[in-house]
Computed example of a mutant assay.
Amino acid sequence: MAVTRRGYIFSAFLSSVLCVLLIVVALSSDSWVVSLATTNVQVSDSELRYGLFRGELILRNLATPNINTLYMTCISNVNACALSCKTDADARIAEVEALAAGFRPSPACLSITDVDDTDPLEKPPVISYAFYVSVITILCAQLFVAVTAAGLAILNATKNPTEPIFGLPGCLWTNVATACLGCIVMLMFGIYWLTSGLNEHLALAYIALGTYEAGPGLGYSYWLLIVSILCAVGNIALIQIRAYLLERDPPPPMIKVENHSDGTIFLY
Results as ranks from 00 to 15, higher is better:
191 I>H: 04
180 C>K: 12
133 V>F: 03
45 D>W: 00
264 T>L: 06
138 I>G: 09
254 M>Q: 13
112 I>H: 14
93 I>G: 12
93 I>T: 15
5 R>A: 02
67 I>T: 14
247 E>P: 00
42 Q>R: 10
43 V>L: 10
167 G>I: 01
245 L>H: 01
208 A>T: 01
82 A>D: 03
160 N>L: 04
33 V>Q: 05
152 L>K: 08
186 M>L: 09
244 Y>E: 09
187 L>D: 05
173 W>T: 08
238 L>G: 05
230 L>N: 01
97 E>K: 13
141 A>E: 02
174 T>N: 11
268 Y>G: 09
98 A>E: 05
133 V>A: 08
99 L>V: 03
36 L>W: 09
76 S>M: 04
39 T>W: 11
167 G>N: 04
84 S>K: 04
150 A>L: 06
201 H>V: 04
68 N>D: 07
3 V>H: 06
265 I>L: 12
13 F>E: 04
166 F>V: 09
159 K>V: 13
195 T>M: 06
165 I>L: 00
244 Y>Q: 04
89 A>R: 14
10 F>Y: 13
21 L>M: 14
143 L>P: 12
108 A>T: 11
135 V>D: 12
216 P>N: 10
82 A>N: 02
48 L>Y: 01
69 T>L: 14
76 S>F: 10
258 E>K: 15
225 L>W: 03
35 S>N: 12
258 E>Q: 06
205 A>L: 01
243 A>N: 07
193 W>A: 05
49 R>T: 12
253 P>E: 07
3 V>L: 02
18 L>Q: 03
